[in-house]
Design a protein around this nucleic acid. Structure first.
Lengths: 68, 68
DNA sequence: ACACATTGTTAGATATACCTAACAGGTGCA
DNA sequence: TGCACCTGTTAGGTATATCTAACAATGTGT
């Protein structure tokens, strides 16, 4: 799964650390999310999206394989 | 977290078992989701939403506390 | 009342999201 | 050069989503 986290972070000018704090997770978690290295819980995805001023389906980009 | 799974299932006339099969999880998982008893992974939420012909943010209803 | 489909619940096992701590590489600025 | 700040990575631990299997409860039609 790809994400627009980095892009949206840049747009709002916040760091991984700041995003992590606002969302309530560790910075490493943001790093992993940003790189698509794991599949977050729905609530976490929601908090990230809202903190970035966006929606889940705009921040997280699903692929064919995610439906199978 | 509340969901509209049961409502949408009724609308499309499919059972928990059928939804589970289409989504690729066990029926118990659907039961728990439907009752808001746990916080699914983002990909699972996506598959459930698509299978019900809807979107994540329409199927899963977030509350204040989900932002904290 | 009886069958049958659907839904609900429980308990134990497994996978993995997420935490914690620590360190390394890059970039900009004094 | 040297110091901050930001980012990336790694390893071990904890919590919990999901699986499996089995059974109970409820509903629905005959």
């Amino acid at each position: 799964m790809k994400t627009r986290i980095r892009e949206l972070r840049a747009k709002t000018g916040i760091t991984q650390e700041e995003l992590a704090q606002q969302v309530g997770v560790r910075r490493e978690t943001i790093v992993f999310l940003e790189k698509g290295k794991y599949n977050p819980s729905l609530k976490l995805a929601y908090r990230v999206a809202r903190t970035l001023g966006s929606t889940i389906e705009e921040v997280f980009i699903f692929e064919e394989e995610d439906l199978a």
